[in-house]
Design a protein around this nucleic acid. Structure first.
Lengths: 368, 368
DNA sequence: TTGTATGCGTTATCAG
DNA sequence: CTGATAACGCATACAA
């Protein structure tokens, strides 16, 4: 059947009637019991006779009874679902984190509701309100580049909503946090560049408001200083939208190569989107990477290693971060007593040094 | 503050108390009104006096009243949220589709709940059950590679759940569908290869159960036949998990280059994951792309165009597909009368032919 | 114009 | 062992 033409199909039968699920009341009526008996039988309560129990359970199984989670949520004031807010799921780092989150959540009977802020504070707030009113039991969040007003999150936290931050954390809110050792990761990467002879190293940074930007720049600066190199302010360029808009990366890179100065011999990109954005701009400008300008940066996309020659990248353990964050969150949710000590879990990033376009399988070589 | 050490913080105040939201009842009590009056005032009902209305609205605004959607869902038997099931959000095609879906959904006051099947039928079914019991108002789905039993979906559809399929559709279920013209897309791509002198063109296909696989292979075969080339069965290799497991791609590619035959001079990869997987395997095998083996395939990742030389790719209008699917779904949800005519919307894919590592910005050149 | 009563599906409390 | 009833938060038919 060759497509290309619109295919129209007729379905005469009634099709828009409401999707009616079997309820506990239906079972009660059908079996001549009361709803409470049915409810208890389904919950395998000890005070129900084996015969009744079997009767109810068989009927429920046969008719594929599913308890209505909406009603349950209303009653129990909990939904057994957790909310996740990230800037965008198309970013490999975040989609990998989400996989880790789902992994732990599902194993513990929780569902995951994902929302994207697309680096907009307004959307973040909107999502936050939707999720909380949707009675999520807890929240895992990596704040947007725009977010500088944490009052809503703070209030949420104070009112008892379990929250775990990851990656882009909020220092001033007391709760569990999961990050990689951004300082060390960038320090090592910068030292790696210096050891390979680069002296004029620029940094392409995310919004200055973000915790990760502060930590990563600190690593960059310390590495330069420790190796007798001067930190030049105009070699640090910020992208306020984290590279979400390509033109801001272009402006930043153009700034580095601006008016008469010879430009950096290496650039270190301090976020996933900045790495790919920078690579794209460099190619568009016709600068050979790494011959004319070396590039090193954060990235969790597998495609980066297919580049030729492959980029040296800083890779975050995204999946584990998701897992750790979720474990912490579930602990917060399920602990009966108030938690008074909050933990900041610091994982290690990997520096994956790719040699060249080798004709045999390349092994990632993490630097110790 | 250098990280690297675990940081412990003390928060003495009570923090695990339940997050209690303001209800309509609270407002009624505070204002000495009945709950129904408050409810009606909030809904701006005509039968409430302006003064009372103002009183209630002001109080609500001041105390940041948020209606509880759970209670609303229970009452109205609708949740104003739609479910989306895809194999994985890390796939750029799907994350772009989701962006399109969210775009339309949010503009119409709907929320989007995303679930991943990870190409597993079991997980797909589980998600399906969760979403439906969670009383979603409609469903947008692209089925997993494993799915051959459509009875659950069929029953859901018959019971009145609005469903829209996209990309990997189910022919036998009568409802709206959104696809690209897979036949034409692959036909054109194959002709492009033939025109460039390739004669020994292999196809790397997704699971044979998928609609897209059938349509795409039909385009491939027709292009060969129309140009006097023979279709050889051993030049078509299937990856049952859609490239989710790299080893299956490796086996498929190894099969093409197996025992004594000289192997194809070009490969056409019929899905995003297969394109990147195949590229990876070819590189690992040390085969130069495109000099020794040309590669062309579906891809929606921007990174593919950063490859050097850039790949020629078939790009699907993912964002639009999401938008179209959502428009159709909302129409299904909100139409009062039963729909009897279902539409299959066929969009065009783009063949992006990349020349070489040009030193100036490359423009995508769609083939007419 | 406003208040009272009911129900959405479920569980918990109390009676029988 | 089982049944009636209230409650979760909201909207609405009906009563005043």
């Amino acid at each position: 059947m060759a497509p290309g033409s619109q295919e129209l199909v007729n379905l005469p039968s009634a099709c828009n009637m409401k999707f009616e699920a079997l309820t506990i009341k239906d079972i009660a009526k059908a079996l001549g019991l009361s709803t409470s008996t049915v409810s208890r039988a389904l919950r395998d309560s000890y005070e129900i006779s084996p015969e009744t129990k079997k009767l109810v359970l068989d009927y429920a199984a046969l008719n594929n009874y599913q308890p209505n989670p909406i009603a349950l949520s209303l009653k129990e004031r909990r939904s057994r679902s957790i909310g996740v807010i990230v800037c965008e799921i198309a970013n490999s780092f975040f989609s990998q984190t989400i996989n880790g989150i789902e992994n732990i959540a599902y194993n513990n009977g929780y569902n995951v509701i994902i929302a994207q802020s697309r680096e907009s504070f307004d959307r973040e707030l909107l999502n936050l309100q939707y999720l909380t009113s949707r009675s999520i039991d807890g929240l895992i969040i990596s704040v947007s580049t725009e977010t500088k007003d944490f009052s809503y999150l703070k209030e949420l936290n104070q009112r008892g909503m379990p929250i775990v931050f990851f990656d882009r954390i909020v220092d001033e809110i007391d709760t569990h946090k999961v990050i990689v050792d951004n300082y060390k990761g960038v320090y090592d990467a910068t030292v790696h560049l210096i050891k390979n002879g680069y002296r004029n190293i620029a940094a392409l940074a995310n919004s200055g408001q973000l915790s990760i930007t502060r930590e990563r720049l600190a690593g960059y600066k310390a590495a330069l200083a420790d190796n007798g190199l001067e930190v030049q302010d105009d070699m640090i360029r910020y992208c306020e939208h984290g590279g979400m808009i390509l033109s801001e990366v272009e402006n930043a890179v153009n700034g580095l190569f601006g008016k008469g100065n010879k430009g950096p011999d290496a650039i270190i990109a301090l976020a996933d989107k900045l790495t790919t954005g920078c690579l794209r701009i460099l190619k568009e400008k016709g600068r050979k990477v790494p011959e004319e300008t070396a590039l090193i940066g954060f990235s969790n996309t597998d495609l980066t290693e297919l580049l030729d020659p492959p980029l040296t990248i800083i890779k975050q353990p995204a999946f584990e971060m998701g897992e750790v964050a979720t474990s912490q969150l579930l602990q917060l949710i399920e602990s009966k007593r108030p938690i008074t000590r909050f933990e900041t879990r610091v994982l290690e990033s990997e520096l994956l040094i790719r040699k060249s376009s080798a004709s045999k399988p390349r092994k990632a070589k993490p630097v110790s």
